[in-house]
Simulated assay, not measured.
Amino acid sequence: MYQFRRRDRRPARRGGPESAERWPVPIEVAGANVMIVGYFSAKEKSYVALMDAAASELTARGARIVGRTVQRRGVSGGGVKKMALPYSSRTLLSSGKVREVAAACEGADADVVVFVASLTEHQQRVLTGILGRPTVSLSETRAAD
């Protein structure tokens, strides 16, 4: 006779309460060197204004903006065809753009990387590991104040 698999027999894969305490880490941007990263589709025509608004908001909190990087998706003919495909769920950006951001952070001596787009906890962990500095979304810096 077939028995249904019981879920309570398998160990939990995800971390318990201790992982909830680690992520997301509240980041204080006052007095920090901040690199701003934006991810926008080609349909977003006012991406420069959004980046300027994010920079002025962070500057008002005492952060020093040391650089900006933008990843636009769907600008070229090949990119338009890929708009329906999923982007990198690990890093939100392409691998080349992540390397570019890492090099820019090293060159500008950035303390924190702030994404204009929202990031998942997994993306934060991966990007923090790749970039070597705390990575948060702009909405999480608002919550930290």
Rank of each mutant, 00 (worst) to 15 (best):
R6C: 04
V114C: 10
S118M: 10
S94I: 12
E121T: 08
V112N: 02
E106Q: 13
V25S: 06
D145R: 14
Q3D: 05
K82L: 12
K82C: 04
S41P: 01
L50N: 10
M1N: 11
S118G: 06
T59R: 13
G67H: 02
S95T: 15
S94D: 04
S95Y: 10
F115E: 01
D111V: 09
V136W: 01
A110G: 10
S56K: 14
Q71P: 00
V75K: 02
L50W: 11
A104W: 07
L119G: 02
L93E: 02
S41G: 13
E21R: 14
A42V: 05
L138M: 08
R99M: 15
I65Q: 02
V113T: 14
A108V: 04
M83T: 06
E100W: 09
A20V: 08
R72E: 07
G78D: 04
G16Q: 05
A110D: 01
G78S: 10
G38C: 09
A49E: 15
E28I: 08
E18Q: 07
P86R: 12
G132V: 06
S56L: 09
P17T: 11
A117K: 11
G38Q: 05
T69F: 14
V70K: 06
V113R: 01
N33K: 05
L138K: 01
E28G: 06
S137D: 05
R61Q: 13
M83D: 02
R13L: 13
S19P: 00
V101G: 04
R64Y: 08
A84P: 00
Q3S: 15
S46G: 13
S95E: 11
C105A: 15
L50C: 12
G132P: 01
I36R: 02
A108Q: 08
G15Q: 02
L50E: 10
A143C: 08
L93V: 11
A102F: 12
K45L: 15
Y87N: 13
A20H: 05
C105N: 06
R125C: 00
Q3V: 13
M35G: 05
G62C: 02
F40A: 07
A60M: 11
A55Y: 03
R68T: 12
A84I: 11
G107A: 15
L127E: 01
R68H: 12
S139I: 12
T141I: 14
V116D: 00
V48T: 15
L127R: 03
V126D: 01
R72F: 07
G79M: 06
V126N: 03
S139Q: 11
T59Q: 09
Y87D: 03
A104M: 15
G96A: 11
E140T: 04
S89F: 14
E21W: 08
A103N: 13
P134A: 08
C105F: 07
G74D: 03
A103M: 15
P26F: 03
D111G: 03
S94H: 11
Q3Y: 13
R64D: 04
D111S: 08
L93T: 05
Y87G: 14
E57H: 12
L138I: 11
V101M: 10
V70L: 11
G15C: 03
V136D: 00
V136Y: 01
I36F: 06
A30G: 02
S88C: 12
P11Q: 04
G67T: 10
I36G: 03
L119S: 00
T59N: 09
I27C: 04
Q123V: 07
L127S: 03
E44V: 14
V48D: 14
R61F: 09
